[in-house]
Nucleic acid binder design. Structure first.
Length: 258
DNA sequence: AGCCAGATGTCCT
DNA sequence: GGACATCTGGCTA
């Protein structure tokens, strides 16, 4: 299920409006057999949704401040879920940016200019005055680049306003405020199998896109170890669209000092 | 690339 | 009572 979700769209409609992301990075968690899964030690109040029917959202709160959303994907009684790690905002970008504003200055290395969002060019090239740079820096501090709007599981939830309230939400009902939709690109079982088999040898060349950002060719799927996981760290159950800039950075798990 | 703080829920002893 | 978490953002080197 995890690689099949790549390219699909997660949309959330609230009183503030609609925000939707095309999923670019996911991780699979098997329940009973996976020590990295929240369900590994059995059902608790927190993980109960994972033991229910498939197609529902399992949302959990972590690190005292972040939410992450999973898609339950096995029949009731068998816990299993796919963590949605990153996506590209395809609708409601200004609302997503408002929700994410103030959290992070623009990433100066990603080749985009934060100021371009409001028509102001941010540049360190010759001819730019110190005042220009100061104004640009102040603006950048309050702006999140398009790439970073849903780059990471907690950022994705923030951009979509997914919180505890969405735990247990039906992702498949057409009328559901939080729902999953087919993407622009549908992957066949063969594509998925080949994508998995090609992991590690596929070139990270990027995906050609049209003016609307839609991919024109079948994307290459890469796989690797899951992020922030110690148990079963060797399992390559993280899947992402090769070369997509919205895929989150890999981080090794760091245990906190005692 | 690496280190660290932040905030609180969850689960284990 | 305590360890630590499917993380992010700020900072240092």
């Amino acid at each position: 299920v995890a690689p099949a979700l790549l390219g699909c769209v997660l949309a959330h409609e609230t009183a503030d409006g609609l925000v939707a992301v095309e999923l670019t990075e996911v991780e699979a968690y098997s329940g009973a057999t996976d020590p990295a899964s929240h369900a590994y030690r059995g059902m608790t109040g927190r993980n109960a949704v994972m033991f229910g029917p498939p197609g529902y959202a399992y949302v959990y709160f972590t690190y005292g401040m972040h939410f992450c959303v999973n898609v339950v994907c096995q029949p009731a009684g068998t816990a299993s879920a796919v963590l949605l790690r990153a996506g590209r905002v395809v609708a409601g970008e200004s609302l997503a940016r408002r929700r994410r504003a103030g959290r992070r200055a623009a990433d100066a290395q990603d080749g985009t200019t934060a100021g371009a969002l409001d028509g102001t060019l941010v540049s360190a090239r010759d001819g730019t005055t110190a005042d220009d740079l100061e104004v640009a820096a102040r603006g950048a501090r309050d702006v999140v680049t398009a790439r970073d709007l849903a780059r990471g599981p907690a950022r994705l939830c923030q951009a979509l306003a997914v919180t505890r309230a969405q735990n247990g939400a039906d992702l498949c009902a057409p009328a559901s405020p939080l729902r999953l939709l087919p993407g622009h690109v549908s992957l066949s079982a063969d594509d998925i199998a080949q994508g998995s088999a090609a992991a590690g040898i596929s070139a990270e060349g990027g995906i050609p896109a049209d003016d609307a950002g839609r991919t024109q060719v079948k994307p290459v799927i890469s796989t690797g170890p899951r992020v922030g996981v110690t148990a079963a760290a060797e399992v390559a159950w993280r899947f992402w669209l090769a070369g997509d800039p919205t895929v989150s950075a890999y981080r090794l798990h760091k245990r906190r000092a005692r």
